[in-house]
């Protein structure tokens, strides 16, 4: 098929930009490990409270791991347990969460911590909390009548 000269330029530029985007996100994901939350850990949604680590929600200091703290959350309509957490500034934190009933969201407003919680699956995300402040944790996936009252709080303290 014949194309106008400018159309070839445009397609080269356009496709080139798309390739650039893919290289940037692909490289930061597969080289630097900046993956979107994609854990493959399974759990019986009806026995969440009995199974570690969800039998003990909260902030736990850990040793000998790639991260300093593990933050464990259990979501259910329309609560997060714990309702508030505190972690020190610049700590490397692994967020571990699951749901006991329907699908919920787990979003820390103003950060990249944003993952879906689905019954039967554990969601995980590791990040270094490098800005102090109080961050609202909220459910961003429709879960029922109390959806917009489902909150918790992340405090990053110096």
């Amino acid at each position: 098929m014949h194309m106008h000269k400018y159309e070839k330029w445009w397609l080269t530029f356009g496709v080139g930009s798309l390739v650039l985007f893919l290289v940037i996100v692909g490289f930061s994901a597969f080289h630097y490990g900046s993956h979107p939350p994609s854990a493959k850990v399974y759990i019986d949604p009806e026995r969440v409270d009995e199974i570690a680590p969800f039998n003990n929600p909260g902030v736990h200091k850990v040793e000998g791991k790639d991260w300093d703290y593990e933050v464990v959350f259990v979501a259910s309509a329309f609560y997060y347990n714990p309702p508030e957490i505190e972690v020190p500034l610049d700590a490397k934190v692994k967020f571990i969460a699951t749901t006991k009933d329907v699908v919920h969201g787990f979003q820390v407003a103003g950060t990249n911590i944003n993952m879906m919680l689905e019954p039967g699956y554990v969601s995980e995300f590791v990040t270094t909390v490098d800005k102090s402040g109080e961050y609202l944790i909220l459910c961003n996936e429709y879960c029922g009548i109390g959806h917009s009252t489902m909150t918790s709080m992340l405090k990053v303290v110096e």
Binding site: A109, L136, S148
Partner: peptide, 19 residues
């Protein structure tokens, strides 16, 4: 971009400063 969710009723999110 500030973090306000979609598909949500009006809420003050427990008086959160962000919300």
């Amino acid at each position: 971009l500030f973090g306000a969710p979609r598909r949500s009723d009006f809420s003050t999110y427990g008086g959160s400063a962000q919300a």
